[in-house]
Amino acid sequence: MTSRMIPLHGVMRYAFTSPTAIALLADGRIDADALVSRRLPFADAPLGWTSTVPGEIKTMVHVNE
């Protein structure tokens, strides 16, 4: 890192970036829906831990369904 002058940034969570992230989602510039690999109703939420699906990225639990 020293002899090639490479900075290494540790990133701990979102630190003041939520408004930017919400704006990017609202504009459609980031398609977060593409990352949702499965949707579960609240009653089936335990399946999120006990049953995996191929190509799983993000399981979304709908707490009001």
């Binding site: 890192m1 002899s3 090639r4 900075p7 290494l8 940034h9 540790g10 990133v11 701990m12």
Partner: peptide, 10 residues
């Protein structure tokens, strides 16, 4: 580094 959100510069 990640947990402390620290930047290291060479």
């Amino acid at each position: 580094l990640a947990r402390k959100d620290v930047t290291v510069v060479g």
